[in-house]
Amino acid sequence: MSSVLIKNESRLGLKLVAPAVGIIGLLVIYPILFNLYLSFFDVQLNGNKTFVGLDNYTQLLGNPRYYHSVGVSVIYLIGTVIGTTVLGLAAAILMNQTFRFRNLARGLILLPYFAPVISVVFGWQFIFDPVNGIYNHVVVDVLNLTNERENLIGNPDSALFVVILFDIWKHFPIAYLLFLAKLQSVPKDLYEAAAIDGQNPWGRFWHVTLPELKFVIATVVLLRVIWNLNRFEDVYLLAPNVETLPIFTYYQAFAGIVDQGAAAAISVIQLLVLVGLIWLYVRKVLKW
């Protein structure tokens, strides 16, 4: 038996992963468990704790604000997931054509994704600013759709839609990249065969492109749901009045009447949903 070589290899492997796994264990896995623990306590900012059993959960489930934020999150998720997927797909199909300045265009449409949230939210706020913004200028002064200038971001109901539009703008490039990579790998002869079979461009899209993209679409949708469930900065910095779940958690934990135990409880529930989604992603999408 020559297990020495195998043993050496596994020893080296463990040594190399140890630092990263240690840090992740200490700062991700442990906090997840610690969070569960905290959710049974009344927790102060300074670290003081009193055991309250399931109080945090019962209070949370009786809190209309919680259900409101769940509702807001659901609308936000539906809007952003559909928006980024559709726009990402459209952009990928467009950028897969050959035309002049294609490389420039491909680079430019990635910009929103890489820009720091903080450096673009003010631009968006300016666009929708009731006094100076171009949105009100176009809607009121140019198109005369309404007479009054509106503060779209000031009002939580309309702000939700601005936030959704912002998220689509910021994150469709990533969906676009995934789609484009797949489109580029679709063999050309498939299209040629379809063209010879008499399919028009729409038929080629429907019968060749879409079936090829099925798995990528599933990947994009699921990944969008997973990331956007946790999305904080994009929403909070643009319109802090749009209370999606992460924002609600943040307010519970760090603003006004601090209730970190309740925040922990929200996180526990959200994590369960997330684990379900990740499980779905790993089992159904990655295995394809």
Binding site: M1, S2, S3, V4, L5, I6, N8
Partner: peptide
Amino acid sequence: AGLEDITQGDIQIGNKTINDLP
């Protein structure tokens, strides 16, 4: 070459058993 381990048996190079040699 030592790129796969030997499940059973011996390999010698120059009369030296090298099973466990990396």
